[in-house]
């Protein structure tokens, strides 16, 4: 598979969130505003790319029986790195994402890619795979966050969109809104797929 294809597959066909249903917790918990979504996607993509790269580099020296603990140590180190850098340089973002930064470590996407891709492929294609999956994650997050922020707060990235008379549907920025948004979004994608395969 060419590198471009490697990248593209993560965005739609194998989108980790919308098609594979992986890493749902951070998606639903931190998508109440677009700025949080961007911060979370950037952090996740960074961890994904770095851990994919390192795991691919050391893949030949790692005994098969203890590969999972080693992968977890690598991933957890990068997560801690992100945690510290974020607390030092982006304190506001670090506060609003809270524990979900630490919880990147149990995001199934990252361990999943380490196991399914990085441990079998070259470092370069692993980086590309990480970038593609990260882009897919970011795409899903920003899409869901946009729907929630526009409907639930009447703003996008903090800019008011509708003037003062708009009464926001507050439920969308609260927890039920996250479930409803992703439910209808996945149903919509399924509907498109069904129509495509029917024709």
């Amino acid at each position: 598979m060419s590198l471009t294809k490697e990248f593209i597959k993560g965005i739609y066909r194998e989108n980790p969130v919308l098609r594979l249903m992986l890493g749902l917790c951070p998606v639903l918990a931190t998508s109440s505003s677009v700025s949080n979504a961007i911060g979370m996607s950037a952090a996740t993509t960074f961890v994904l790319v770095c851990s994919n790269f390192v795991i691919s580099l050391i893949r030949k020296g790692v005994p098969a029986k203890i590969r999972i603990p080693i992968f977890i140590i690598v991933i957890a180190s990068f997560v801690t790195l992100v945690e510290m850098v974020m607390a030092g340089f982006f304190p506001a973002l670090s506060k609003s994402l809270g524990n979900f930064i630490s919880l990147i470590v149990v995001n199934c996407i990252i361990l999943g890619r380490a196991e399914a891709f990085a441990s079998k492929n070259t470092p370069i294609s692993s980086i590309i795979d990480g970038l593609g999956m990260g882009a897919g994650f970011a795409f899903a997050m920003i899409l869901i966050a946009s729907v929630r922020e526009i409907l639930g707060a009447g703003t996008w990235l903090g800019f008011p969109l509708f003037g003062t008379d708009f009464e926001p549907i507050a439920i969308f920025v609260m927890s039920p809104g996250a479930f409803l948004t992703i439910g209808f979004l996945v149903a919509f994608l399924n509907w498109i797929e069904h129509r495509r395969s029917a024709s």
Binding site: P63, I66, I73, S77, L81, M84, V85, G88, P91
Partner: peptide
């Protein structure tokens, strides 16, 4: 092997912590 990986990882983290802690 696991010990070695853990030591390398925590060493690297200790170094980053030293840099970022004053800022935090």
């Amino acid at each position: 092997i696991l010990m070695l990986v853990a030591v390398i990882a925590s060493g690297a983290l200790a170094y980053v912590n030293k840099i970022t802690l004053p800022r935090i």
